[in-house]
Amino acid sequence: MTALAAPAALRAPSPRLSRWLLRLHRPALYVFTGLVLVLAAALLWLWGPLTDAAAEGWRQWNACGDHPRCSYDQDAILRYKKVYDVTTLAMFLLPFLVAAWAGGALTGGELENGTAELTWTQGVTPARWLAAKLALPAALVAVGTGLLVLLHHLMWSAGEGRIDTSKSWYDTLTFAVNGPGLVGLALAGLVVGALAGLVVRRALAALGVALAAMAALWFATLSALPYLWPAVTTTGDLDSGFAVDGLHVDYGLVTSTGRHIPVPVCNGRCEDVYTKLDAVGIYNDYHPRSHFWPLHLMEAGLLLALAALLTLLAFRLLTRRTATARHREEAAV
């Protein structure tokens, strides 16, 4: 088998192989399905009753004005916030759980205990084995995370403008789970974990490597996010301030010649420092609300492209290793 055989292996796995894989990883399938159902139920609860109750609680609070003894439904407000925070965090952690499972059980565990090699002796090529390993979980992960993203976005939109403490669209965790970027991150996590298992070939070590790689990928994605789409620049006088309603990219001072310079450390004597720098105004580079979908689509596209490249790398690595092992066996005979 050569590396050229890898694309052919990307065809749909045979029904027999698919059933075997489902039986082998049945516990993980049950856990993932259960987790998706629980989160979906929580999101539906948030979308309907909890949002309505919290919105009514805030309406009561805003109607109180300055009356100290005015009553409002504080429990509904706090309940909404708690369920929202827990559900959003759980969704954010899903790609990491997928990566850990892929490294520890999907490939690393089978290579460590010899199950993979046994499968290859039953008429299943290594490339077809890996294709089946990736195709079935990828479909489940895409459908599961896609459903959760849709429900989360609907739920968040229902509370926007109605709940005073609702998260902004650019809140780190809210943005991460509120669009297709989460699906791309989950699929990338699946491939990262599978590749870690192929490289390390030990379940526990592959699990750790997959989690570390996912942490690095997340921080890289978070750092690159503001630059995935052209930012909007606004200017104002020196008293305007740097607060914006959006995702901040950069800010600083504007000189009389129109040059943008960083904000200096002034220790309470800012006017004198600004005068010496010839600063006449300030600028803000940021992403407004209208950039939500462009940013998410760019993020998802880059993560899916990375997942595709890592998939090809995984096939290349598996092909080389199996070919080397076969040549060694032939030489020994």
Rank of each mutant, 00 (worst) to 15 (best):
T235K: 15
L150K: 14
T165V: 12
M1A: 14
M214C: 09
T324I: 10
S71I: 01
W101H: 13
L134C: 07
W61Q: 11
T121V: 05
L318W: 05
L97V: 00
L222G: 12
W229K: 04
T33H: 09
L228M: 12
P7M: 04
G189C: 07
L277T: 02
L195T: 08
R202H: 14
R320M: 02
K276P: 02
A231K: 14
A176G: 04
L190I: 02
P7L: 11
L44C: 13
V273P: 02
E330R: 15
V191L: 05
V280M: 02
T174C: 12
A194V: 04
I261A: 01
L148I: 05
T121G: 03
R79M: 00
P226A: 13
Y274S: 02
L313Q: 15
Q60M: 08
I77H: 04
R321N: 13
L228N: 05
A213F: 08
D52G: 11
A186I: 06
L106N: 12
A305N: 06
P49E: 08
L106D: 00
S223Y: 14
R59V: 00
T322M: 11
R23M: 14
L207A: 11
A54K: 04
L150I: 07
G246M: 03
N113V: 06
D285Q: 15
P7Y: 07
L43R: 08
R320N: 06
F175I: 03
L187C: 03
L217Q: 03
L24P: 04
S18C: 05
A54D: 00
T275P: 03
L134V: 06
P262G: 07
V232W: 12
A55H: 05
L238Y: 05
G236Y: 07
N178H: 11
P13M: 00
L39T: 04
